[in-house]
Design a protein around this nucleic acid. Structure first.
Lengths: 199, 199
DNA sequence: GTCTATAGTAGGATAGAC
DNA sequence: GTCTATCCTACTATAGAC
């Protein structure tokens, strides 16, 4: 499956295909990509496995569609944030908001992005790894500038990056159990906890 | 495989079995339990798949041995911490130290605990889920007491628990790339970042 | 304790009827 | 667009020689 030879990632998918991707996201979240069979997926949709192939080319295509679309959202998002003329703290606040927004929209898909990206193949694996590395690099530069400017405490930069990103990346596991929290209040509290601590 | 009918979890394993568990931990971390075959595992150990069964009963036993042992370490650890007559902040500091210690000792195994626990079967799945729930409950009570006593800021308790645990649970992914950091300095900085924030 | 050989099952994917 | 039937491969695990 070539990345440039189809249109799976950026445009809206036809109805049936979108249903398949959506059902797959849920199953992949529960058991992981490798443990979900095409028969499992078909059963969840009330059809037979063979019928899936009228809508998708392969199991691999489903995984790539889920992951690459989300990775591109994060890439686009952080580029927009970097460009703004904000303070470092404001930029980090916007990154927290970005993760919360994406999580609210597609928590299930984020499970695959976090746990099953290594099962991507060929160009998609490389493409994903490059996006992820670039994302971390943008974040790293941001934190570095914040420390130099005296906005952030002079902690080990890697620890700041790790502790912040690990929390944001795991939101997909936690938020579905906390739907009663208003998203705006969640953003405010998350910003407060991550930036100012709990003591 | 019954939990009480063998001694896999608490005592030291014979040499060859331990090598198998160790090699499996690494492979499970890289690709996940379901995507690692017994042939993959055997190849990593320079033997044939059939030979593995002279040392272990099933693939499932390997997973359970990895996960249950670690879960019991955390259970024992948090019970000891709860019993101490420390302030809440001191207890949280001890929990951070506990996670760092376990991660230093067995980062690979923690990948299975975090990502493949749902592939445990029967009693082991129930046993694990109970331990995990109890762990979170102990943590929750601790944070609650800290807020009531005025030691912790009156944030949403669930957000504090989530942000702290998500970072500690993801240490296994991060620490192997940061081996140059002295464990004691890591503990100190992690305590500072998680409790007092970065601003 | 390791091997070869293989049983028995389940996986992804395709062919062709309807 | 969905189905049944099936191909081919890969999986976990066992049997039995050495």
């Amino acid at each position: 499956m070539g990345r440039t030879s189809d249109n799976s990632f950026n445009m809206k998918l036809e109805g049936r295909k979108q249903e398949i991707i959506y059902a797959a996201s849920i199953l992949f979240k529960e058991k992981g990509y490798s443990a979900v069979s095409m028969r499992d997926l078909a059963k969840a949709l009330g059809m037979k496995a063979a019928s899936l192939y009228n809508h998708i080319q392969s199991k691999q295509e489903i995984l790539a569609t889920i992951i690459i679309g989300l990775a591109e959202e994060f890439t686009t998002g952080i580029h927009a944030i970097v460009k703004t003329k904000s303070t470092t703290v404001e930029k980090i606040e916007q990154i927290i908001a970005l993760h919360i927004d994406v999580t609210l929209r597609n928590a299930d898909g984020l499970a695959s992005l976090n746990n099953d990206w290594m099962h991507l193949e060929e160009e998609n694996l490389i493409y994903f790894e490059n996006m992820r590395q670039e994302y971390e690099e943008q974040f790293r530069m941001m934190v570095h500038e914040g420390v130099v400017a005296g906005e952030l405490k002079p902690h080990n930069i890697e620890i700041i990056i790790f502790s912040t990103l690990s929390t944001l990346r795991t939101l997909y596991l936690w938020y579905p159990n906390q739907r009663h929290i208003d998203p705006e209040i969640l953003k405010r509290d998350m910003i407060s906890v991550l930036l100012k601590g709990v003591v």
